[in-house]
Amino acid sequence: MTPLRRTPLTPDALDSTDRAILNRMQDGLPLVPYPFAALAQDLGLDEDALIARIQAMREIGAITRFGPFYDAEAMGGAFCLCAMAVPATRFDAVMTLVNAHPEVAHNYERTHRLNMWFVLACEKAAQIRQTADRIEREAGLPVLLFPKEHEFFIGFKVTA
């Protein structure tokens, strides 16, 4: 997999048709044998042209992925957002010991007294607390657990 592009494309990298494709295709495709043919008509393109444009946008890094978005929790995994207040002098050492746990899926430094935020991903719910306890012991610092209590439906869309 190519690494995620983290810099903006130049404004002329995409034309208005590309932008219409991006805007439309974030909403989801029909689960039918020829999903692109169904959409191409709406976008005023033929099927091959639509697929070629998606391919090209993937190559320049405008699109990161095409496919089903799975809900990992619905599939049985356990996840929990955690935070720690790590003294600046110990930050790198604590980061190293936290990241060494395979259950730590991602970890961000953030601008707050609670300056280290990571997500634990485990197979079973009980393993979340156990892993957090291990990290607490190793770091000698409290780990705050922020499990999801309610997830709201998201209207997020990147307007291309």
């Binding site: 995620l4 592009r5 983290r6 810099t7 903006p8 494309l9 991006l22 295709m25 974030q26 909403d27 989801g28 495709l29 689960l31 999903p35 998606i54 320049i60 890094g61 405008a62 699109i63 990161t64 992925r65 095409f66 496919g67 089903p68 978005f69 799975y70 809900d71 619905a74 599939m75 990147v158 291309a160």
Partner: peptide
């Protein structure tokens, strides 16, 4: 998709590439 295991089948735009940095 009906059971919520699949949220949707779609493309994921790259926020960064589209300027949402």
């Amino acid at each position: 998709q009906g059971a919520g295991v699949i949220r949707r089948v779609a493309i994921a735009p790259n926020h960064y590439a589209l300027g949402l940095t």
